[in-house]
Design a binder for these strands. Structure first.
Length: 558
RNA sequence: GUCCCCGUAGCUCAGUAGGAUAGAGCGCAGGAUUCCUAAUCCUGAGGUCAGAGGUUCGAAUCCUCUCGGGGACGCCA
């Protein structure tokens, strides 16, 4: 619908430009939907935008634009008016709106998808938690947002790969291995204190017991280093499985599990050195490294960052940052046009240093985007549920999923803009009523299913033959809302903002429920009924497509 | 001290490259079901868009400053 208006206004502006000898009269036609009915179905502010260029008052320009509209305007509009400071308001013929339903029906599951991505290769990396424990609530928002961004991008014509970066190298993993080994030794009566920053969660003991039932006391005969190493690898395997299961519970699946240890710290077939060493050499060749106080530094300040960073510590071991540069260099090497990272907001300081590093080795850092996600607060009875990771008393993601279900979990985590802090209200999440926005939307979907069941009993089926009978304001408004869906998805994809789809679905569901209460679908008049069935079938399609994009189920019955 | 996010109704939050009289849900006060699911709908009250300047035809939106909340500033990851 908007395209139609853009088309005719554009033609008009071209005509004006020709007649007045203004060759560079170009303008983006922006079509708005006024909130108030008196202002028509669509409006355009073009006159105000080009008034200066033409040298006339906005309202006069508006008149000019209307005069120069192509003849097809009569087929499309009932009325065109100038209002306020120079808006042009279009009153569209009901018929031309309603006929657009055919496009939705034809589009089916594809309606709402687009090709704005043009097959661009995108890597979305998210979660990327250390396999040193279970996923907690903080990870859950990252997981669900990342997955949904990926779904929306796919739907918009991007070629998306979802990747989980496994931080399985370095200090944290060593600590985990040592902690497990200590618990293992406990099982044989060797008591030893866990170090200050060792892992204290109960799962560490569980893993130790598994090793014991697997291997008996054989680890005691190995060297402590060998034993710890074994424990580490064993624990990693178990915890990764656990993480995969937790993610699967909320419908999150990855295409790639990228092991830092295997890819960055190991010499791969066909290469002479590790990626870690290779990147260090590359940086060195660019002259951006410096030895200071026994450590090797990256001069990030030369590339816009506020401070320099250590890449190799004075004890000779690499920092996480160096591995991260190597990892991101590899992302470019793998040929992605666009690289998206979903990070917790607490990592925002790392954006500029990584960008600085990419820039220093000549990579186009505009292809690299970080979506920062603000924190989640878990609320129960109006109180924040306090979590302390140190004490091992944090609420895991799977505990909450078990409590509220996957659909609610996902939707609640998607409801807010990613740059807003999110209060996860457990009490609301568990309510099976209209207060709960998930059920509100799903109920609309199920309700349509139920109407169709009724229609079937009555022997009425949907038809596009009588769409002209859809004349009620609620019907026109509903169709207009449906037609907005592709635009919402596109907007959501461009701005990496899945909450826009969530909001849209709530609005659409509200409008449908209103319609349901106002107009009876299955009625005596079979012609009207068949047209209305056609309409609500389109509503069902859009609700279904939207929910699917969010990874939330669309139930036929509730 | 430097940097990032936030401040909109009692609460939780939307607000679409600046647009017309600022929205939704919850909560609150009323009301609607002989009929497709009342997990629904309707009506109402409720606002100095944190504050002050600036930019212009026009600002919740853009710029500057102030105040308030959260987070980041490691040879941790």
């Amino acid at each position: 619908m908007k395209e139609d208006i853009i088309k005719v206004v554009c033609q008009s502006v071209e005509n004006i430009a020709k007649n007045n000898d203004l060759p560079d009269l170009t303008v983006d036609i922006e079509v708005g939907m006024p909130k108030r009915k008196e202002f028509g179905d669509f409006s355009v502010n073009t006159a105000m935008l080009i008034a200066n260029k033409i040298g006339k008052k906005p309202r006069e320009v508006a008149e000019l634009i209307i005069e120069n509209l192509p003849p097809e305007k009569d087929e499309l509009f009932n009325k065109i008016e100038i209002a306020g400071p120079g808006f042009i308001n279009f009153y569209v013929k009901e018929e031309s709106i309603v006929n657009k339903l055919l496009e939705i029906e034809t589009g089916g599951k594809k309606f709402g998808t687009s090709n704005i991505g043009e097959g661009e290769k995108v890597l979305v990396e998210f979660v990327s938690a250390n396999p040193t424990g279970f996923l907690h609530m903080g990870h859950s928002r990252n997981a669900v947002v990342g997955d949904t961004v990926a779904r929306i991008l796919s739907a918009s014509g991007y070629d998306v790969v979802k990747e989980f970066y496994i931080n399985d190298a370095g200090r944290q993993m060593n600590l985990l291995g040592e902690s497990v080994f200590i618990r293992y030794k406990e099982l044989f009566g060797h008591s030893e204190e866990l170090s200050e920053d060792g892992y204290k969660g109960g799962y560490v003991k569980d893993i130790a017991s598994k090793i014991e039932s697997d291997k008996g006391d054989s680890l005691l005969k190995d060297s402590p280093e060998q034993a710890s190493e074994y424990c580490k690898e064993f624990a990693k395997g178990i915890l990764l499985e656990e993480i995969k299961n937790d993610l699967a519970e909320v419908n999150v699946y990855f295409d790639e599990w990228y092991s830092e240890k295997e890819n960055i710290h190991t010499v791969l077939k066909g290469s002479e050195d590790t990626k870690l060493n290779a990147i260090k050499e590359l940086l060195n060749s660019k002259g951006v490294l410096e030895e200071r106080e026994g450590a090797l530094w990256f001069k990030a300040t030369e590339f816009g960052d506020t401070q320099d960073w250590v890449l190799i510590k004075s004890d000779g071991s690499p920092t996480y940052f160096l591995a991260d540069i190597a990892y991101h260099f590899d992302k470019y090497e793998r040929g992605f046009d666009s690289i998206i990272n979903i990070w917790g907001a607490d990592h925002h300081g790392h954006v500029s240093r990584l960008k600085a590093a990419l820039k220093s080795i000549g990579l186009d850092e505009s292809r690299f985007k970080v979506l920062l996600i603000q924190f989640v607060r878990l609320m129960r009875q109006g109180q924040e549920v306090k979590m302390s990771k140190r004490a091992g008393s944090y609420v895991t993601m799977s505990e909450v999923v078990e409590e509220v279900g996957s659909d609610v979990m996902r939707f609640f985590l998607l409801m807010r803009s990613t740059e807003s802090h999110l209060d996860f209200d457990l009490d609301l999440a568990k309510k099976e009523s209209s207060e709960n926005p998930v059920y509100y939307i799903q109920y609309a979907y199920a309700r349509i299913g139920s109407i169709f069941k009724k229609a079937k009993d009555e022997g009425i089926s949907q038809s596009s033959n009588n769409l002209g009978l859809l004349k009620a304001t609620e019907e026109i408004e509903l169709v207009k809302k449906l037609l907005l869906f592709p635009e919402v998805v596109e907007e959501s994809a461009k701005s990496l903002a899945p909450h826009k789809v969530a909001y849209y679905l709530q609005d659409l569901a509200a409008q449908f429920h209103m319609y349901y209460n106002k107009c009876r679908v299955v009625d005596e008049n079979q012609d009207i009924s068949s047209a209305r069935l056609y309409l609500i079938s389109c509503v069902k399609t859009v609700l279904g497509n939207g929910l699917n994009m969010l990874g939330v189920s669309a139930p036929e019955r509730m």
